[in-house]
Every structure is written in structure tokens, then in C-alpha cells.
Design a protein around this nucleic acid. Sequence first.
DNA 1: GTTACTGCAAAGCTTTTGCATCCCT
DNA 2: AGGGATGCAAAAGCTTTGCAGTAAC
Lengths: 142, 142
Amino acid sequence: MNSKLKQLKEFGIKLTPQRLAILEYLNGNRDHPSAEMIYKAVKEKFPMTSFATVYSTLEVLTKSGVISELKVDPERRRYDPETSPHHHLICTKCRKIVDINAEVSIKIPDYLDREFEIHSRHIEFYGICQNCSKGGANILKR
Amino acid sequence: MNSKLKQLKEFGIKLTPQRLAILEYLNGNRDHPSAEMIYKAVKEKFPMTSFATVYSTLEVLTKSGVISELKVDPERRRYDPETSPHHHLICTKCRKIVDINAEVSIKIPDYLDREFEIHSRHIEFYGICQNCSKGGANILKR
DNA sequence: GTTACTGCAAAGCTTTTGCATCCCT
DNA sequence: AGGGATGCAAAAGCTTTGCAGTAAC
């Protein structure tokens, strides 16, 4: 958290209360919230906060590399304080997005490495999360 | 192609000219077009075709399993006549989406298989495509 | 003849933009 | 003090919806 603030200062980015609130809300958050969820949460602390500010802040934070933007959900962007590469499981029952922090080894044919300069990779696993397979309540409809 | 038509008939889905035109345009298409691109292409053949029809057809075709919907591009949905599982490379220069049909082996820790019922997986590779690494023209701006 | 599909237009969501005001540094 | 950040409202882009008319089966 503090290293993130330091990082932002180095970029000459102003630390406004709204931005700090967004960062605080995201810090340690494993729910991959959308801009709207972040907006709602931050608004409770700073009722004056606007949507535009949340969006612009999320863009600034993403571009500074302090948070990352997930493209896992086709409906809306989601944000993640964890910037180191990791994978995700999308529960096909409750639609929850779960971090896969484990070491995953991928083996691709040599010719692919010759054809493309591959810089990074991201795996989406589709399946059933622990909660749902436990016969857990399927609270979320879709 | 014909097997797809057969498949649709079995589902009791009506084969209208618009639907056939969409299917024909998608057949063998490796560009992962968006709904708008499909709309434009189909409109040339059937100028009366509406956006709503394209969207509803794409939904029907996706639900019948005749085409698949890609979530690779966070800006818009893209469609693919290839329904068997394969992976994608997203060129970070020209934004092109390239099929990775090769066999890719993924090894995940045992505990993940215990925690989740994993049904499928999809890898996004990020890198530079052949065209761009050849010093090829970077036609598309973003 | 039925029933599902089409076209049109309007609305719904998420995200972006313009601009005057404000406040972090 | 200065320049970036904020809030508001309006707009833009993708997708969905309602409904009357139409065409596939």
C-alpha cells in the first residue's frame, strides 16, 4: 500500500482524498470489483465523489501500474490491486472470479515461439468454485 | 457448414436469409469479427437487415453452439465460427487476434483440481504477431 | 395457419468527454 | 500560485427490448 503511494508520487500524481479512498478500498480486495462497485463503496466515505472521477482515477492507477484492469468479464471492466501476473477461475454457476495464484506451467510448441514474440499470458479457467460445488447457495442468478 | 445448418434445424431454428448470410459470412472467417462488422458485411447482401436481427441471430447461433462468442476483446464481443476449443494471441501492436490452434499443455497443481471442478480453459497470449514483428506496417493505430 | 423472426426506434448500460470550479503540492 | 483533479451533465458506443408487421415451416 505505502509502496503504491510512493510509486504514484514518483509519477507526480496527486494524492487526493478520492484517490486514496479508491486505493484503500482496492487494497487487499480479492473481489475484482467493477467501476460501479468501487464508486458505490467510495461514495459512502466521500458522498461527493463522482463517477467521472472514479473512472479517471482507475485509468491513472492502471497506467501507473499500481492496480491492474481485468478483461475477464465481458460485461464490464474489473479492477485488481494485485499487479503480479496470475490467472483466474470463472465460476460458471455464481459468476464469481477467483484468483489462481498457483504456479501453472504452460508448454507451447516451439514454432509458436518462433512465429510470435510472446510477452505474457493469462489463463481463464471455467468451472465451479468451492462454494458452489459444496451445494452452496447459488445466490447470484447469472 | 452443412452440418451447422442441420444442427440448427434440429433445434427447430428457422433458416432465414439473414441468418444464412450471417452464417456464410462467418464460415471460415478467421478475423473474429464483431457484431458491427458482421452487420456491415451482411447488409451489403441484404440492405434491409437490421442491427437487432444480427444481435439476436448471433445469440441464437451462440446458444445453439454453432458459433462461439469470444470475450477476448473487452470493448466488444467477437464471434468465431470455430467452436472447438482453441487459444488466442492478442497482438499488442496491431490488436489483431490470432488463433492458436496448437496443442498447449497446462499443468496445474493437484490442489486446484481438488478445490475446483475445472471444465475448460482458455489462454490469451499477449505479444507481437508475425506481421508486426516483420517490421510490418502498423496500420491500426491502437 | 402458426409461430417465430424481422425491422425500427427507443432505451439501457458502461464508459468518455467538456467545462467551470476547486484544491493538492 | 499553478496545473492537475473534481463534479456535473451530456454524449458516445455497444447491446437489449417492445411491438407491429412478415415470412419460414
